[in-house]
Computed example of a mutant assay.
Amino acid sequence: MSPSNPPGRYSADTYIEQLNDSRARIVSTGKQLLDWLSRLDEFAASEFIHLEPMFNLFPFHKRNDTFRLLLELHQSSKRYGTLGVSLRTESMRTDLSNLTTAELGTVLRPFCGPQLSKEHATAFQRLVRFNNRVAALKFLGVEFAPPVGSGPVLPRWFESLEVYGSKCRPLLEDRLAEFLTLSGDLDYEMFEFNSMMGKVRYRSIRCTYTLDDVDPLGPSDPGFKVVSSINPITNNRRYNRMADFKRALKKKQISKELRLDFGRDPSKEEIDLTLKSFRPRRESDWITTKVIKACHLGRLSTEVFETQKNIVAVMQPWNALRSQLQALLP
């Protein structure tokens, strides 16, 4: 596991400190998400305030048409619990949430001019982002139930969100705890793999995260990487992701075969042309027998495949849950 350190020898202590800071952000982010759910209706109302200038443009009368904004509550799988806003007349209807900012600005321009239309379109994106976060809660399996009866859509949405948020909160709390548990399990399995690999050397394999100082969900993108070079003075290392390493192996093998066919070194263009002649195939991120051979790990092959299996068993649910939590972020 290698953080981005300044020039110098690799520092395990520095990495551990960065990893701990990154993990702490998960806890902080979890608290923010739970607070968001506790006040989901209030956050919805605060977002809608930014749309009031746009809503004040309507109804708008032009010749024989009256343009109105229609609000509706969505319960489809992709827009679960969200507020829909459509522009309509007697003869047309445009779902504003399906438009890009530029497209919405064009639609609004006849009603308020070019400058204000851009401002309104930008403000509307706040609602789109909030809607996306609400829709992402569906993975918790909580029913979004609008109040029984009829009445203005907006108050009904706020009321529904208050109930929905309170029901989602304990379930999200459980999923956050699960994510922290999976993160600890993944740390352990990655440590076991890297320990089994032994001392870092050229073409040894490491399982590493991407660490930075801003990701609200902490370490990301765990994966196998091959050491492609080590600076003998600073001990700084360069890594190739497993898929990239496999592509490099394939390219090297093709070059070797062409050299035998041509009786000379093939050109870069000849190698690339041969590569393109093969059926396109995405290289996987997993260690294979060819990788074991190229990295001179034959004596450890059983251990490598066993520890890789253990990592994958944790990594897959970890990635799935992380993606679900990522969709809830502002």
Rank of each mutant, 00 (worst) to 15 (best):
K290T: 10
K167N: 14
W286D: 08
P53W: 04
L182E: 03
P53D: 08
Q115A: 14
A327K: 09
E269G: 03
R93P: 01
G151V: 04
S150F: 11
P59W: 06
G84C: 06
S277W: 05
S46L: 11
S117H: 02
G113M: 07
E90M: 10
R241D: 15
N132W: 00
P317V: 06
Y202W: 10
L300Y: 09
S46Q: 14
L70W: 11
D285N: 13
R203M: 09
S150P: 05
R88G: 08
A44Q: 06
S323K: 15
I271H: 03
V134F: 02
Q115Y: 11
S150Y: 09
I311W: 00
F305P: 00
D215R: 12
E162N: 12
A121L: 05
D95W: 09
S166L: 14
S204R: 07
H74W: 09
A123W: 03
P280N: 09
F48E: 13
R282Y: 07
Q32T: 12
F179K: 01
L69C: 10
D265I: 06
P146T: 04
I271R: 03
H61G: 05
A327S: 14
L19N: 04
L37C: 02
L258M: 10
P280D: 08
K62Q: 15
I311V: 13
W286H: 12
T274K: 13
L70T: 11
G8K: 12
K293G: 08
R169H: 12
N236H: 12
L260R: 15
G149R: 05
F111N: 04
R133G: 07
F224V: 01
V214G: 11
